[in-house]
């Protein structure tokens, strides 16, 4: 396959994943806004920071208002990470790699784009927001489902998956990066209502509340949440899970191609790091520093994949 095609698949699925993650963050932000009073701006600021779109917003807006933030994250064409932009970019990449996709995947992707164009053509009122976000989630899930059900498990599939999981790891790590202070043995008294809301925010942004309850019951505490999102091998959005998936895909590629690329080494190092890390040690050494270094490691891994498989000239 062409290096360009690998690149296109990788970014198609990264942007699809990003659109989905952003929609989840918007939903969380709105939910928090509904269930508590005050400090609203701060919450939206941190939501934007998590999505990495705060700088762009502040450069184009005078103040932070809920409606403007939602519009910026949902529809803005000036924001490359808005839901709308993410879906358009994913679809544009899908057009580029049209020959690598099955008909089902292409139609799901194009259908997702068409539905988003229609639903997000005008500003979405708060009342219609849940429907719009639900539609995005459904449509992106359809693309993933078609991918899963119809694509050959060859190198193309591996590049698509690597894109998905690097983006997902990045999203989860950013949530932890922005919210790490909530999880620290903190100045707030543990168990206070503010803490509970914040913790719930974190779990909500990764659709992890149900999963967490199954594993840890109703005992919500920072240590278990961090453990769940960083190290749990069963949680499909945890950093460990994502790293293992990327490693799997790189191992397939390596044996398929008969090579030992540098990216494979980086992925192995990352996975073994999670295997040997203990959550208590992570807290001892500093959660923030830890997340920062993991973010860097994922980013290096992504860059190495691009080089190893000749994405660009």
């Amino acid at each position: 396959m062409l290096g360009k095609t690998a690149n296109g698949l990788y970014w198609m699925y990264r942007y699809l994943e990003r659109a989905e993650n952003t929609s989840r963050l918007i939903e969380t932000g709105q939910r928090i806004g509904l269930t508590r009073t005050g400090a609203d701006d701060d919450e939206w600021r941190s939501v934007m920071k998590t999505a990495g779109v705060d700088q762009g917003y502040l450069a184009t807006h005078d103040d932070i208002s809920k409606d403007d933030v939602i519009d910026w994250m949902l529809r803005s064409k000036d924001n490359p990470s808005s839901v709308q932009s993410g879906i358009s970019t994913a679809r544009q990449n899908a057009r580029l790699v049209r020959t690598a996709l099955t008909h089902e995947v292409w139609e799901a992707m194009n259908g997702c784009f068409m539905a988003a164009q229609k639903t997000l053509a005008r500003k979405v009122s708060e009342r219609d927001l849940p429907t719009a976000l639900g539609l995005v989630r459904q449509r992106t899930a359809l693309v993933r489902g078609a991918t899963h059900g119809t694509m050959l498990r060859n190198d193309m599939y591996n590049f698509a998956r690597i894109g998905t999981f690097l983006e997902r790891a990045n999203a989860t790590a950013r949530i932890l990066d922005v919210k790490y202070y909530v999880l620290l043995p903190s100045v707030f008294s543990v168990g206070s209502s503010i803490d509970n809301v914040q913790w719930e925010t974190i779990l909500r942004s990764v659709s992890g509340r149900g999963g967490y309850r199954m594993v840890h019951g109703n005992n919500t505490n920072p240590r278990d949440i961090a453990q769940f999102l960083i190290l749990d091998k069963r949680m499909p959005r945890s950093l460990n899970f994502c790293a293992r998936k990327v490693l799997d895909n790189l191992e397939h590629l390596s044996s398929d191609y008969g090579i030992e690329p540098k990216s494979l080494e980086l992925a192995k190092t990352l996975v073994s790091r999670f295997a040997h890390n203990d959550i208590d040690v992570i807290f001892e050494e500093g959660l923030h520093e830890y997340i920062q270094s993991v973010l860097q490691a994922f980013s290096d891994l992504g860059r190495q994949v691009e080089i190893d498989f000749r994405f660009y000239e």
């Binding site: 396959m1 062409l2 290096g3 360009k4 095609t5 020959t99 190198d155 191609y257 000749r310």
Partner: peptide, 23 residues
């Protein structure tokens, strides 16, 4: 067959070649 653009191609050893993930 592959769908290529100019920047996927280059002349290598007297042949026109496409840049694939394997070289």
């Amino acid at each position: 067959v592959e769908l290529v653009e100019g920047h996927d191609l280059r002349v290598v050893n007297g042949r026109v070649c496409m840049r694939t993930t394997r070289g």
